[in-house]
């Protein structure tokens, strides 16, 4: 298992957001996490790279105990790429600057090496010609692809996607999903929180349905979408499909 989370609990003050979640992800697997808003799926994702520290439980990624005090968290995070709903590109840097910053500062590459690797990453997301553009000069879809390039440039073992297309205009969603699909084909392990059910059906190995801080049920996409066993799953999928 490349990702192994055991009995994750997370409290925000009095709020109990995760109530004991177990999640194992195999290498090259694409796990799709769905659920109503407030179900804890984003928090779960952020616990995996310790952007949120779980109140209790254990997280291992690629053999590293993410919660151990002795773990060099900055080094560990290089192996876990993350893509955010709101892109979070650095507005004061070019696309290439965004992609190469961590290569230089965390991976310790020289500027020349980092530029080559960064350019290659931009190539993979189809934006080689936008390297010197600033985020403000790019469309939302292009910004999100730069954000993906920023993550894959570090050659992570796992990629986390936190609602990568929710902030995009409908006509821009396709380009981002295409990049995700090609990542998938290259054998990347991916955990995706999203409402793109079509993408889930076509590309996911497993769909996980979360509600109220717990995993309610999981299985292959066909099983979850066509024959959900749980009442809450059925209600949620019915709701989504009506849109």
């Amino acid at each position: 298992m490349i990702v192994s989370a055991k009995d994750i609990h997370k409290h925000f003050g009095a709020l109990h957001v995760l109530k004991g979640v177990d999640l194992d992800v195999a290498e090259r697997e694409l796990v799709f996490v769905i659920g109503p808003s407030g179900s804890g799926k984003s928090t779960l994702l952020r616990c995996l790279n310790r952007l949120e520290r779980p109140t209790s439980g254990s997280v291992r990624v690629d053999g590293i105990d993410m919660l151990a005090p002795s773990t060099d968290i900055n080094h560990a995070r290089q192996r876990i790429g993350m893509v955010f709903q709101s892109f979070n590109l650095y507005p004061h840097m070019t696309a290439l600057g965004n992609v190469t910053l961590a290569l230089r500062k965390v991976a310790g590459k020289s500027r020349a090496e980092a530029d080559v690797l960064g350019q290659a990453a931009l190539e993979r997301v189809g934006l080689a010609d936008r390297a010197s553009h600033r985020p403000a000069e790019l469309s939302g879809g292009q910004q999100q692809r730069v954000a993906i390039a920023r993550a894959i440039a570090l050659e992570p073992r796992v990629m986390l996607f936190d609602e990568p297309t929710s902030a995009l205009d409908p006509e821009l969603v396709g380009s981002v999903l295409a990049v995700m699909r090609s990542l998938r084909e290259s054998g990347m392990t991916m955990i995706v929180v999203s409402h793109e059910m079509g993408f889930a059906r076509a590309a996911a190995d497993r769909v996980v349905f979360m509600d109220d801080g717990l995993i309610v049920e999981q299985g292959p996409p066909a099983a979850i979408f066509e024959h959900p066993t749980h009442e809450r799953t059925r209600a949620f999928i019915g709701q989504i499909q009506r849109h």
């Binding site: 952007l51 995070r77 790429g81 955010f84 979070n88 965390v106 920023r150």
Partner: peptide, 23 residues
């Protein structure tokens, strides 16, 4: 500076000080 900027930088492995200075 929005929280997302901190999170994006930290998620790529930049340290607190690097994030502060570079981003």
């Amino acid at each position: 500076v929005p929280r997302g900027q901190w999170e994006a930088a930290r998620s790529t492995g930049l340290s607190f000080v690097q994030t502060l200075l570079e981003v």
